[in-house]
């Protein structure tokens, strides 16, 4: 589904990614962790080309992403993205946030789009908030709306960029629950997160990054119990201490 080969990327002189290779199968759940500034977000933002990589190759569903990609929009239609800061459209109601993609991009009729929107609001357990504005919802509810907004495009892949990092602690679980449920539907997911409990529960593959490189890739049991690299061990000790 996603094939990354030797990806490199610079912000000016700073090397954000160097020689990153990773492949994700359809239906696979990959959790990426690592200290801040290690390039985790940059990596998943390259997948739907919110960042442009400077070397290496990146394929999504067989299509190479790069300068020559004729229609990046066709690729983006198949990739949902959930941001740390939700990025809901504040001037639109929850329902409009959800329907705007299907109506404008997928050229769906308003009625069908609304039906679909209500279905996914149900899926994220807030069907009653459809007519409110994002600012009237709690952080956890907003993030669930953001997940529903991405799902309304019925993508093949979902990318999560630290979806719980901006939330109050008591709201983290309601978002993680939705993500666990989503994982059980067979969606291909790549999550950047520090929620190790969630990772243990859903991940097929754990990826540890540091300073723009992938240090370790392993199945979760092996990753949590017998990490091969020292740096990964140190990171896990810090995160799992409490």
């Amino acid at each position: 589904m996603i094939e990354i080969r030797g990806l490199g990327m610079y912000f000016g002189k700073f090397q954000a990614l160097s020689n990153v290779s990773l492949s994700v199968e359809a239906g696979e759940k990959v959790v990426i962790c690592g200290p801040s500034g290690s390039g985790k977000s940059t990596l998943i933002r390259c997948i739907n080309r919110l960042e442009e990589h400077s070397s290496g190759q990146l394929f999504v569903d067989g299509v190479e992403i790069g300068e020559e990609t004729r229609n990046i929009r066709n690729v983006r239609m198949e990739i949902g993205m959930v941001f740390q800061q939700f990025n809901l459209f504040p001037h639109l109601t929850v329902l409009d946030n959800l329907t705007v993609g299907p109506v404008r991009v997928r050229k769906m009729s308003r009625r069908d789009a609304e039906r679909r929107a209500r279905k996914y609001l149900q899926r994220v357990h807030i069907p009653e908030q459809a007519d409110k504005y994002p600012s009237q919802l709690s952080g956890g509810q907003q993030q669930r709306v953001a997940i529903a907004r991405s799902l309304c495009m019925e993508p093949k892949i979902m990318l999560f960029d630290e979806p719980t990092s901006a939330l109050d602690p008591e709201m983290i679980n309601e978002v993680l629950d939705v993500m666990v449920e989503l994982a059980s539907t067979g969606m291909t997911m790549i999550c950047v997160t520090h929620e190790m409990g969630f990772a243990r529960k859903v991940a097929d593959k754990m990826v540890f990054m540091e300073e723009g490189e992938i240090i370790e890739t392993a199945p979760p049991e092996e990753f949590f119990n017998h990490p091969r690299s020292k740096r990964c061990q140190m990171f896990l000790d810090k995160v799992l201490e409490h």
């Binding site: 739907n48 919110l50 929009r73 066709n74 983006r76 239609m77 990739i79 949902g80 993205m81 941001f83 800061q85 990025n87 809901l88 459209f89 705007v100 993609g101 404008r104 991009v105 907004r149 991405s150 495009m153």
Partner: peptide, 23 residues
């Protein structure tokens, strides 16, 4: 308008025109 708003529009595969007009 924050960069995140435009990124959200782009990740929904919106055209530049829709991104401007709607978001």
């Amino acid at each position: 308008v924050s960069k995140g708003q435009r990124e959200a529009a782009q990740s929904l595969a919106m055209r530049w025109r829709d991104e401007m007009q709607i978001v």
